[in-house]
Design a protein around this nucleic acid. Structure first.
Length: 809
RNA sequence: GCCGGUGUGAUGGAAUUGGUAGACGUAGUGGACUCAAAAUCCACCGCUGGCGACAGCGUACCGGUUCGAGUCCGGUCACCGGCACCA
């Protein structure tokens, strides 16, 4: 019989679905395992070969877990709100809801063709009102706890998407989605106070089994720095609070810098002799794009405030105050004390504007030539009164204590993390359930009115005035105040795409619940996600956002765990043939449907796992796909030529035990490529030594998570299904006998003076003397030690023997 | 600039705690089968020298530790990723 994958694959997909073999049980005596992959955005292009990499990996893991006796939850869903769908809808005049429905149908069909063991009864769709009802509900809880607030501030504005962006969505000064310029726009926006959770988001990483680069990237992004806030006086009598990580250098502060947007600058404007110049600088700074502002090696600019001075609280010295855009209004207090002798940026600015440079930490080069910034124990404080003689390390707590006693400063921690800008001026998102009343201000919609449905509109084009398309829906916007019953209007911005994905993994636990986002029992049973695999690109977006939401839900008693995910791993990208990124314009996009048609889903699954190190990027190769198909063909042929008998072929036995061990360990470690290599090597042995049905039976169990369709078919045709009373995916994972993983004899390396001179075959665990005897009998060894005395022997059991010799006297 | 990572044949990549470098797969070469091709099967496949047995060299580069280094240590170079005027 031919390996007719085109007939076999749909047949088993249908049988699995009918028998619901992959359904997760709500209650079970088995231990639970929740494996999760990031749900896709159902784009119009359909599945891309990048998708199957993480999906197949987790499918293998969960299929093995089922065979290990776990009650497995392996769900799938669709993150369907978002700009591309909306843009497609605008272009083709189809409602986004219809586009979404069609795309989900297409994705579902493609995913089923790959044979994934998803529990299809638990599919979630973030655009379904019965789902986004709970997204809105969570927003209301955030609002009630003061973690959602509306603020007017300069925000990132994508000129092409005509929409605000979160900090996390701006990459190198441009929009991460479309690559267009991002400018600052003063807008009133809903914000989420993720900064309140900054410390816990860092601290709790310690307990998690996340790959290190995820942890460091999140820590990096949150950007914790410790220091002190110090209050300087201005000659006007106003307080100027600055943040510094180097309070030890306070005596070296020779000027101050405020951000151009600083409140005090506005206040002082009438006093300033150069107010015109100052206003001009503020205007110029405001109109700069993010790209211009962050440009490297940019020369420092700024304006001195004529008429106001600052006073250094440690020595009473009057020092000049500048405004400059190198001080950011959104970090710290928006004001700094400048210590040019010990900070590169301040040094550069001081040189340009002729400010005084006073050395207060000795141990570096001439501070007039370059700043000395070492923060370790090499520097000793000078010119600093009571701090003189201390190391930097000791001076920081000393001066902080002093500041606290004097009441002019205190220890302070700052984070680079900013609050999350949560409104989008677009149509295809969750409506924000808030109402504005002239009398009562912003009021939350009563929970009983959820979901607040997205209204049908004529046009969902974004507008240049920065208003959402929903704002044109006069009838929908007009409402009554939930508080006083008077006339009011609805919020017309929608939530960002990240909203729905911030809690979707909870919904899988109890997807049809209409009383709560999920029942307490389901949450208790399934939490946390045991293993979550996803892309590195989501580390500081989805992964951070969802940890934040989860911690909030934990705080209000909705979820039972502090953290949503116990373990996080990440896959590398699939590149086009030749190593370039796959893209339509390069014409190197591989469509999984084509591969399935030509070679079958099992071959695609094998190849995508064999392609290379799972964590690293890998280039597609059509030829290498064929290698995997050949392997499956050989297995198929073996099933027809193997001998009867349940017992292992003696020549294969130790190889089988070794392979069970290798494949079991490698799946757990996500080393799918070497697991497959081990099975290939075993099959090569079967071909060389011949094999029995018993040999094949174990191979099918091992191979099943990787190539499930073929294994089911052979399991049945070889009679195992009838004998064992079930499909191969319902069987137990094979066990190995450690004592049988070693063969009876081993090949050992023989070295002379550390140089390889030959090998010897000896019984396992041979004693040193026996090995040395055997080694001396090897021709090349004998020649190498001729006329020499063996002075030392290094013997590593079953591995090698190294003879150290010197000339005989 | 700061933080993290990587560097192995023509090629994707393997190599427990330092212990036979190149598993497994591609591509290539030779052969079998075939009228022929495809498919399949067998053999070879790091570099240099030699007809040969064999010898020497080899994991980015330089040095060190060790009986023994792809693996550990010090230095250099190259590439990739993250953060970046964050005080």
């Amino acid at each position: 019989m031919k390996y007719d994958f085109a007939a076999i694959e749909p047949k088993w997909q249908e049988r699995w679905e009918k028998a619901k073999v992959f359904a997760a049980a709500d209650k079970s005596d088995k231990p639970k395992f929740y494996g999760l992959i990031e749900f896709p955005y159902p784009s119009g292009q359909g599945l891309h070969v990048g998708h199957p990499r993480p999906y197949t990996a987790m499918d293998i893991v969960t299929r093995k877990k089922r065979m290990d006796g776990y009650n497995v939850l392996f769900p799938m869903g669709f993150d369907a709100f978002g700009l591309p769908t909306e843009n497609y809808a605008i272009k083709n005049h189809i409602h986004p809801a219809i586009v979404t429905k069609n795309n989900i149908a297409h994705f579902t069909q493609q995913l089923k063709r790959l044979g994934y063991g998803f529990d299809w009864d638990r599919v979630v769709d973030t655009t379904d009102p019965s789902y986004y009802k709970w997204t809105q509900w969570i927003f209301l809880q955030l609002y009630k706890k003061g973690l959602a607030y509306k603020a007017t501030m300069p925000v990132n504005w994508c000129t092409s998407c005509k929409c605000v962006l979160a900090n996390e969505e701006v990459v190198e000064g441009v929009c991460e989605r479309c690559g267009s310029a991002v400018i600052r726009k003063e807008k009133s926006q809903w914000m989420l106070k993720i900064t309140e959770y900054a410390q816990r988001l860092i601290d709790d990483l310690d307990e998690l089994d996340f790959i290190d680069r995820v942890k460091t990237q999140q820590k990096n992004w949150i950007g914790r720095s410790t220091g002190a806030e110090v209050t300087f006086k201005a000659t006007t009598g106003d307080d100027i609070v600055v943040f510094t990580t180097r309070p030890d250098t306070l005596f070296g502060a020779t000027y101050m810098v405020l951000s151009p947007e600083h409140e005090l600058v506005k206040q002082w404007m009438p006093l300033l002799k150069n107010a015109g110049e100052v206003r001009e600088y503020q205007r110029a700074a405001a109109s700069k794009s993010d790209l211009e502002r962050t440009e490297l090696n940019k020369e420092k600019t700024g304006v001195r405030l004529e008429g106001v001075k600052g006073v250094n609280p440690v020595n009473g010295r009057e020092i000049p105050i500048f405004i400059s855009d190198y001080v950011l209004s959104t970090y710290g207090t928006g004001a700094i004390m400048a210590v040019p002798a010990h900070d590169d940026r301040d040094w550069e600015f001081a040189k340009k504007f002729g400010c005084e440079i006073i050395e207060v930490v000795s141990g570096g080069e001439d501070v007039q030539k370059a700043a000395f910034t070492a923060k370790d124990e090499t520097g000793i404080l000078i010119n600093s009164a009571f701090l003189n003689g201390l190391t930097v390390k000791d001076a920081i707590p000393a001066v902080t204590k002093w500041l606290e006693e004097k009441g002019i400063g205190a220890a302070k921690v700052n984070y680079k993390l900013r609050d999350w800008v949560f409104s989008r001026q677009r149509y295809w998102g969750e409506p924000i359930p808030m109402v504005y009343c002239e009398k009562c201000g912003w009021q939350p919609l009563p929970e009983s009115e959820l979901p607040l449905l997205l209204p049908e509109v004529e046009s969902y084009e974004p507008t240049d005035d920065g208003e959402s398309p929903l704002s044109k829906m006069t009838e929908w916007v007009k409402t009554t105040c939930p508080c006083c019953g008077g006339a009011a209007r609805r919020e017309t911005d929608t939530m960002p795409q990240w909203a729905g994905s911030s809690w979707y993994f909870l919904r899988y636990m109890d997807p049809h619940n209409d009383k709560a986002l999920a029942s307490r029992e389901a949450l208790e049973y399934w939490s946390p996600v045991d293993w979550y695999n996803g892309g590195m690109e989501h580390t500081t977006l989805h992964l951070l956002y969802s940890r934040f939401w989860h911690k909030f839900l934990y705080d209000i008693g909705v979820v039972p765990t502090k953290e949503p995910y116990r373990k996080r791993t990440s896959h590398g990208m699939i590149l086009g043939e030749g190593g370039e990124k796959m893209s339509k314009s390069r014409g190197n996009v591989v469509n999984p449907d084509d591969i399935i048609r030509a070679y079958g889903a099992d071959t695609l699954r094998m190849y995508i796992m064999f392609i290379g190190d799972f964590e690293k990027a890998a280039a597609w190769s059509d030829n290498a796909v064929k290698g995997c198909k050949r392997f499956l063909d050989r297995v198929w042929n073996l099933s027809e030529s193997c001998a009867d008998g349940e017992a292992y072929t003696p020549a294969n036995e130790s190889g089988i035990h070794k392979t069970i061990k290798k494949v079991s360990d490698d799946i757990e470690a996500m080393k799918f490529n070497t697991a497959i290599a081990a099975m290939m090597a075993l099959v090569n042995d079967f071909c060389a030594n011949g094999c029995t049905k018993g040999d094949m039976k174990t191979l099918l169990l091992l191979l099943n998570p990787f190539a499930p369709h073929m294994c089911e078919e052979l399991w049945e045709t070889m009679g195992f299904a009838a004998a064992e009373g079930g499909m191969v995916c319902q069987m137990s994972w094979p066990v190995y006998d450690e004592s049988k993983t070693a063969a009876s004899s081993v090949e050992m390396a023989v070295q002379v003076q550390g140089k390889l001179r030959g090998t010897v075959h000896v019984p396992v665990d041979s004693e040193e003397a026996a090995v040395v005897e055997a080694a001396k009998a090897v021709d090349k060894v004998a020649r190498a030690i001729e006329g020499m005395d063996i002075v030392k022997v290094i013997h590593v059991k079953n591995k090698l023997v190294n003879l150290i010799v010197k000339p005989a006297k």
